[in-house]
């Protein structure tokens, strides 16, 4: 075994140990937040590649669930719109750097059953994401197989102390979380030869959340940890069009205040995502995807996803060009 292989397996071992040392629990309020991890592009970006993308997601969060049961929501309407800018740069043939920056607008209407509904809109820069990815396995011969691991931090760029009428807004109405989070990430992709144009992928990420002072010194709030596993396949529907079908599992632990679980936070969600991609030319592509919930089991009473639609536009500034849907 060469030194390179030893390093590779050592890295993998450390990554797996980190991933499984945190039990899967996650961040309820992130259902009302920017889709930082779930929306990461899975395009291959290595060796001097530069990929820039701008996405906008409209997320309707008006469904109301008690545990696994939907209840009629007569009183509230709620959305989160997120604009994301992703920059992926290949540092070497195996190492790449990604940065994601967000702008978030949250909106809620309440009292719809009364004659005087109230609305509130909050907007601002959201949290950011910085990740380093390492491709440790790359077999080009069909069926090809690539394995990449990564890690990074969620940077609390977003405001976490916004107020309405002077009153501190609830955590899930803030654009940011106020906390640094650690992230581990992995991706496994495989594709067949040109006679069978199918790409398969499995992406898993885990965010172990930090904490922030919410109501003042020594009053610590921590969103729940979050596990997202996404699997699916993409195929060509002609020269320029691609289709991707995705199954996403997301679980979030309950938020904690001063190490005590907060009620009505946390749970798990299973969603389906369908995505259409269009290659405008070798450098530009446009994407639209829709996400619908298939099932969820939430802790207590929570608003959750009705649906989400995301429109993306990517530009590939690489010297060599890959189709990247």
């Amino acid at each position: 075994m060469t030194l390179n292989q030893v390093t590779k397996y050592l890295l993998l071992t450390v990554w797996i140990a980190v991933l499984f040392s945190f039990k899967g629990t996650a961040q309820t309020c992130s259902c009302a937040g920017a889709p930082l991890l779930g929306a990461q592009s899975s395009a291959p970006v290595f060796g001097g590649d530069l990929l820039i993308g701008i996405s906008h997601e409209y997320h309707d969060i008006s469904k109301l669930y008690v545990n696994g049961d939907i209840v009629e929501n007569e009183s509230t309407f709620r959305t989160t719109q997120s604009t994301l800018m992703e920059v992926h740069y290949g540092l070497s043939a195996k190492l790449s750097l990604s940065g994601t920056f967000t702008y978030v607008k949250k909106y809620r209407q309440t009292g719809l059953h009364t004659q005087n509904p109230q609305s509130l809109a909050v907007s601002g820069v959201g949290d950011g994401l910085l990740m380093l990815k390492y491709k440790f396995f790359d077999r080009l011969k069909p069926p090809s197989l690539q394995a990449t691991i990564g890690g990074g931090v969620k940077v609390p760029l977003g405001s976490f102390d916004m107020r309405n009428d002077g009153f501190l807004l609830n955590a899930d109405m803030q654009p940011g979380t106020g906390a640094w989070d650690g992230i581990v990430w992995s991706e496994l992709t495989s594709s067949f030869d040109s006679s069978f144009p199918l790409n398969l992928f499995l992406i898993t990420s885990y965010r172990f959340t930090g904490s922030s002072e919410r109501f003042g010194t020594n009053d610590i709030y921590q969103f729940g940890n979050e596990l997202i596993t996404t699997t699916g396949g993409s195929t060509s529907l002609g020269e320029k069009i691609g289709y991707t079908a995705v199954l996403q599992y997301r679980s979030a632990s309950s938020d904690q205040r001063n190490e005590t679980k907060q009620p009505n936070t946390g749970g798990f969600w299973v969603s389906h995502i369908s995505k259409l991609s269009y290659s405008i030319n070798d450098r530009f592509s446009a994407h639209i995807d829709g996400r619908i919930p298939l099932m969820q089991e939430l802790n207590g009473l929570q608003p959750t996803t009705s649906y989400a639609i995301m429109v993306s536009f990517f530009v590939n500034l690489s010297k060599r060009l890959n189709r990247f849907y």
Binding site: S75, T76, R108, T110, G111, H113, T114, N116, P117, Q118, L120, N164, F167, L168, L169, N170, D172, M173, F215
Partner: peptide, 10 residues
């Protein structure tokens, strides 16, 4: 006084 989360009539 803090925002409890659901807003007025939430």
């Amino acid at each position: 006084v803090v925002d409890g989360g659901p807003d007025q009539d939430g």
